[in-house]
Design a binder for these strands. Structure first.
Lengths: 343, 343
DNA sequence: CTGTTAGCGCGTTCAT
DNA sequence: ATGAACGCGCTAACAG
């Protein structure tokens, strides 16, 4: 096994030898686990400096059973949604000696499971799952190895906590907002098929419609994929179908971005010809052209809450988790009352 | 130390006991490091299944000195640029048993160094640095502990490899493209101050100007920050200054996104009133409104190349690294000839 | 206060 | 072909 030449990192023994003490004494000083004579402490600290000593976290794990690492299962490293949550996770980890180990599942159950296993093999102290397709059964099984906090599920056991927003309500709110603006022909671009959040939002859409005495029209509902391309293709399809619509509820903000461009290419203006409302309120939605009207959900805050909850599970302590803000409509420039539409 | 109740993971000893063999035999089967009787192999494999055994990578490290983990220093988890490179990194790692451990430096040298240390403390086998502010000196020091591959530097040692694109050329190309379109009053929104890529691109901008006999006008150069907000604020400032300009070279695509919105709010149309060219060609630039004309650099491909280079360093093998594509101009909808401007 | 000993999970001699 | 013993870096229990 030819290992490349490399400064071998100093160990407690190297420090001990250099300082003329035993390894235990070094350890004691490192952890403050017992009183040590001042002169020895100085000698040891000196050696630590000189040899540039850093504890070997891998070896430490063997003793303590703690890797000081938290696994994070995300879907795509380039998903702005997941990354907003990741920002929250990072923020909550600030200065906390735990580091995140990130793995991507690509919305593929098999791959997600493989990545979860990878995280567990690396003996992470806990796992945060940013939604995904892992089923509840698998979740419970994995939780026997390591505590888990997840979004997109709704269970609570000794070792599993979940966060979920009321997607149905959000879908309802978005559609309701459009209805209140006077729109009657409201299309919906659905999220990923089989994805629970997507399905719930669609339910909310439908519910708002019928509660206003408007019939749910399947022809106004087209498939997207929670990404720009899906929104883009969906509007093209919608326009091509000849169906009339004056507003669209997009399953998420990214879908909206794509839809804006698609509409433009069809000669339709946003919001003059078509009103658009999204879901998420990603940071970028302030800068999109035009800036998005959307349903705000506390993504960043959820990231923070997940970390705190997980640390509570790991360290077996009660932690007060800040209550998450409710869903709300953020009004920007992609919506306008129906009465002003057309001319 | 109250550890939460948890299925203790099975060890080689558990397997050995269950299969009625010794731990060494289990190890041999695990690694195929020696012939083992067929019946014992079966018994062991059976036990592995039953006990759901997974090797402890932490313990393994102690023996092998390999953590099978690659550290990645990025700047922001929500930077679409870094994430595009990360996608390449992930792609290259597909099925390779190495996993990435990601840390963010937030464009802050001190924090970057702290994160590098964190990665080294976790005994990563190698480190990939996606640009940043770490200076060359620090880079060389860290490389004594672990091989490093970085972008944004330009050195090559036994244990450090770097990738860098010709930012100056890119800046030149972008500006040249605008000039060829007939533009003469070309503004530039600079990237992050003190950031080398940003400085080089600005040099290229200047060089293109003078090579066309146009005087470099500092009033047409405003500070951005490589993000949307910077582009947005910069154009506002530019317009407020009263300076005339018919085109802008933005230091990167994100700057462009912000600039588009800022211009619109000032009543300026893109590209009819102002042409815009970016730098990067992020995936989203296909979907921005309007889609961006930009300088394409091989971000994703660089991610792949960095991994391969690093693995070469780690495993001390020669690997053929695919040559990276050259910079190129991708023409989309934010630019048009000057002659057609105004009316 | 401090050094010695043992063991965390594993792979690798060294014997057998 | 296989088991026993050792050591990777570290801390905790046990002497002193």
């Amino acid at each position: 096994m030819s290992k490349p030449a490399q400064d071998k990192q100093a160990t407690v023994y190297d420090i001990a030898r250099a300082a003329g003490v035993s390894a235990s004494t070094v350890s004691r000083i490192l952890n403050g686990s017992a009183k040590v004579a001042e002169d020895k402490r100085l000698a040891v600290e000196d050696a630590i400096q000189k040899l540039n000593y850093r504890p070997n976290l891998m070896a430490l794990y063997l003793k303590t059973g703690q890797s000081m690492t938290l696994g994070v299962l995300t879907q795509y490293v380039d998903s702005p949604f997941s990354n907003e949550m990741l920002r929250g996770v990072e923020h909550a980890l600030q200065g906390l000696k735990y580091a995140p180990l990130i793995a991507s599942g690509h919305w593929n159950e098999e791959e997600e499971i493989e990545r979860l296993r990878l995280l567990i093999d690396r003996r992470v102290d806990g796992i945060i799952i940013l939604t995904g397709h892992v089923n509840q059964q698998a979740l419970l099984e994995f939780s026997q190895q390591v505590p888990i906090v997840a979004t997109g599920h709704n269970i609570k056991t000794e070792r599993v906590r979940t966060f979920s927003i009321n997607n149905r309500l959000g879908g309802y709110m978005a559609t309701r907002y459009l209805l209140d603006l006077g729109h009657r022909q409201i299309a919906h671009i659905v999220g990923l098929p089989d994805q629970n959040d997507a399905i719930e939002r669609q339910h909310g859409y439908r519910q708002a419609l019928v509660s206003s005495g408007i019939e749910y029209d399947p022809e106004l509902v087209v498939q997207g994929d929670f990404a720009e391309a899906g929104g883009f293709n969906a509007v093209k399809q919608l326009v091509a179908s000849g169906k009339k619509f004056t507003a669209i509820f997009c399953a998420n903000d990214q879908t909206c971005y794509g839809a804006i461009l698609g509409l433009k290419q069809c000669g339709l203006r946003v919001p003059e010809d078509v009103s658009l409302i999204g879901f998420d309120d990603l940071p970028f939605s302030t800068f999109s052209n035009p800036p998005l009207t959307t349903v705000r959900q506390p993504i960043y805050e959820t990231g923070i809450a997940m970390v705190n909850t997980l640390l509570g599970l790991i360290e077996n302590t009660e932690r007060t988790i800040d209550e998450l803000p409710e869903l709300s409509i953020v009004v920007r420039d992609t919506t306008m009352p129906y009465v002003f539409n057309k001319d």
